[in-house]
C-alpha cells in the first residue's frame, strides 16, 4: 500500500477588483506539494467554493471566505486519497470542509498584498499570513498566493521518517467583473 499523506489546505481566494465590489470567480486552482522519501508528491482539491468581496482601495471592507471540500483531495493515487479522508488525516466524515476566512489585508507593493487568514482544518484554527500578487489580463484579474503549513499543527497524520511536515500550497484564482 502506498499511501501517504499529504495535506493541505486550500484556500482559494483572494479576489479583487478595485472598483467593483462583486467579483465572479472563473477559475480556482488549489495545489499542494509535500516531500515524501525525497520526492515531491503533488495534489489538488477538486471542489473549492469561494466567496469574495475584495476592493484594493477598501481593504478594511474586503473579505474572502473559501471552503474546500476535503473529500475532493486528489493526489493521483485513489487509495491514497481515500486514506487522506480517514480519521488520521482530514477525517472528512466529521469535518467535511476546510475553510479559510480573511481577517485583514495589507498592501505591500504594486499589485502585491498580504492577508491574514484564519485557516480551519478539523478542530484546529490558526491564523496564517499569506502573501499574494494580482495581475490584470483584459477583464480578468488573476491572483496567485503561496504559503506553507505544518501538517502536524492541524492533526494531519503523524511524525514520519519519510513524509515531510511542511506542505507547500499554491492558490491561483481568476476573477472577472460582475456587472
Amino acid at each position: 500500500m502506498k499511501t501517504f499523506l499529504i495535506t493541505c489546505v486550500t484556500l482559494c481566494v483572494f479576489a479583487g477588483e478595485y472598483d467593483h465590489v462583486m467579483n465572479m470567480v472563473t477559475e480556482c486552482h488549489v495545489e499542494f506539494r509535500v516531500s515524501n522519501a525525497g520526492l515531491d508528491v503533488t495534489g489538488y482539491f477538486d471542489d473549492v467554493d469561494v466567496e469574495i468581496n475584495f476592493n484594493e482601495n477598501k481593504l478594511h471592507e474586503s473579505h474572502i471566505v473559501a471552503t474546500a471540500r476535503a473529500e475532493s483531495i486528489r493526489t493521483g493515487i485513489p487509495l491514497r486519497d481515500k486514506h487522506l479522508q480517514r480519521s488520521d488525516y482530514f477525517n472528512t466524515d466529521r469535518f467535511p470542509g476546510i475553510t479559510l476566512t480573511s481577517v485583514s489585508f495589507r498592501k505591500t507593493g504594486r499589485n502585491k498584498f498580504t492577508s491574514a487568514f484564519k485557516v480551519q482544518i478539523k478542530k484546529t484554527t490558526k491564523v496564517i499570513t499569506i502573501p499574494f500578487s494580482m495581475e490584470r489580463k483584459g477583464d480578468a484579474t488573476m491572483f496567485t498566493g503561496r504559503f506553507e503549513i505544518n501538517r502536524l499543527d492541524f492533526g494531519l497524520g503523524e511524525q514520519s521518517l519519510i513524509l515531510d511536515e511542511s506542505v507547500h500550497v499554491t492558490v491561483v484564482l481568476s476573477v472577472r467583473k460582475k456587472y
Binding site: M1, K2, F4, A37, L39, V41, R80, I162, L163
Partner: peptide, 24 residues
C-alpha cells in the same frame, strides 16, 4: 527505486525494513 517512491510504495513499505510495521 524512483518508481517505488513515485508510486507511493515507499509509504507503507518504508526502508530500511520495507514495512511501516503497521496494521491496515
Amino acid at each position: 527505486e524512483f518508481v517505488f517512491k513515485k508510486s507511493g510504495c515507499v509509504t507503507c513499505h518504508t526502508p530500511p525494513l520495507y514495512t511501516n510495521n503497521k496494521l491496515t
